[in-house]
Each structure stands twice: as structure tokens, then as C-alpha cells.
Simulated assay, not measured.
Amino acid sequence: MTPAVTVDCGAVLFDMDGVLVDSSGVVERSWRSWARRHGIAESVVMPLIHGRRALETIALVAPHLDAQAEWQVLIRQELEDTEGFRAFPGAAALAGSLPLDRYAIVTSAPRSIAVDRLRRGAIRVPAVMVCAEDVSRGKPAPDGYLLAAERLGVPAGDCVVVEDAAPGVQAGLAAGMRVLGFTTTQPAEAMGAATWLVPDISCVRAGEPVADGVRLTLTTPRR
């Protein structure tokens, strides 16, 4: 059995979808419907949807469309469709065990969807949450993670990012942070140079409080 790993940091910065909540069915149904409506092959769209803001995905696959208008359509679809949605087991307990000034959520989702999904999953809404509207560049740019660290007052290099998709891993590393990757959405080989890999949030525990920070224990780490 792989020994557990202890990680000390100043703050934990969570992605949301694929990390705290399982919204994959909702997101994928929404994008497939959108692709069919515009006559775009799903094989072109689907590999690009995880970890990115919808604005960036639309710009990549359909630059001729009004990305803001199309984004609003996708938001409405995802707010109305909750079939199969769930919080990952252990997510609410882990978030609830962390000091409010020591964790944040950095998501590519708009704030309306982020708050709705956290509340549906009975996950505490943190004091610091950076959403799609809060940055001019989404993941894989580091802007969201750097903004979260700034708002928490924690040096970027003392933060640990928790991600499930390659663009988010790239964003965390570009911000100078360590990255804990989950293989809930993409396979391990897609997670690039993530510092650690575990299957999901059930493998993460909050340890005893440490001075000016958080202690996490990772069970069954792959590296």
C-alpha cells in the first residue's frame, strides 16, 4: 500500500466541478445540445469543455458566434438541468473542516452556477470565490488562482491547488503553486506535472491545525 502523504500549506484553492461536485452529466448534455444546435461536431467540442470557461471554448470552436450571448444560453441550460448532479462524498465535510480564511474556490463556472451547485451539494460557500466573471483570462492562465491567493492574503507559493482537468493543473503550476490532481474527469496522464495525484476527494483529509495554515493528509497517492 502506498503510504499517506502529509501536505502543509497556507491555503487550499479548490476547483469546483469534478473536485467538489459531480456535474459532468449536466455539463456534457448542455454542450452536446449546443454543438448540435450550431452544427459543430461533438468530437471537436467535447475535448475542450472541461476546465475552461465557456467563453474560451466557444471562441476556440466557433469564433464567428457571439460568445457572450451563447454563454448565457449555456448558463440557463445548466441551471435548469440537475439530473445526476451530486456532491462528491466527503466534499462537504472537508470544506466545512477548513478555516474560512484558509480556503477558496476558483472555478470556470459563472457565479450563479457555482453558488447553486454548492448549495445543492450542501457545501459551505467560502468567503473567497473566484468565478468566470472575475478574471479576464480563464484557465490555463493563472489569473484566477493568483487572485484567490491575493484575496486570502496568502503567498502564491504557499497555496495548494486542487484540480481535475489539464487546464486547471496548468493554471495552478503557472501561478507558482503546488497542485493536487484528481482523476475524476481526466486520466492520470492528462494531469501533466501535477505535484500529487489521487483518485478523488475521499482520499483527502484535513489534519490537525497548523500555525498560519492547513495540514492535509493524502491517502493512496499515485505520486
Rank of each mutant, 00 (worst) to 15 (best):
A87M: 12
A95R: 11
A122Y: 10
A194C: 10
L98C: 07
Q170S: 12
I113D: 05
V198G: 02
L13K: 01
A171E: 05
V130Q: 11
G153M: 11
L118P: 03
V204S: 01
G213M: 09
D158P: 08
A114E: 09
M191C: 04
A122N: 11
T6C: 10
L100M: 11
G192M: 02
D81N: 13
A149T: 00
A188W: 11
E133M: 07
L100Q: 13
D17P: 07
T183F: 01
L98V: 00
D8H: 07
K139N: 05
R223K: 12
A188H: 09
A156Q: 11
H50M: 08
G172L: 09
L180H: 03
G176L: 02
L118A: 09
A69F: 07
A104V: 04
D164G: 06
D22A: 13
I113P: 06
F182C: 03
P126T: 07
G157I: 01
P140Q: 04
V115H: 13
E150L: 12
P209N: 12
L98W: 11
Y103R: 07
E70S: 05
V73R: 15
T183V: 00
A165H: 04
L180Y: 00
L146S: 03
S97T: 14
E56F: 00
P140R: 03
S112G: 10
G168W: 01
A67S: 10
V19N: 01
P110I: 06
D8I: 03
V160F: 01
T2E: 05
A62R: 09
P3N: 13
A127F: 12
T184Q: 06
Q68W: 04
A149Q: 02
V45R: 11
D22R: 12
C159W: 00
T217Y: 10
A54W: 02
H38C: 09
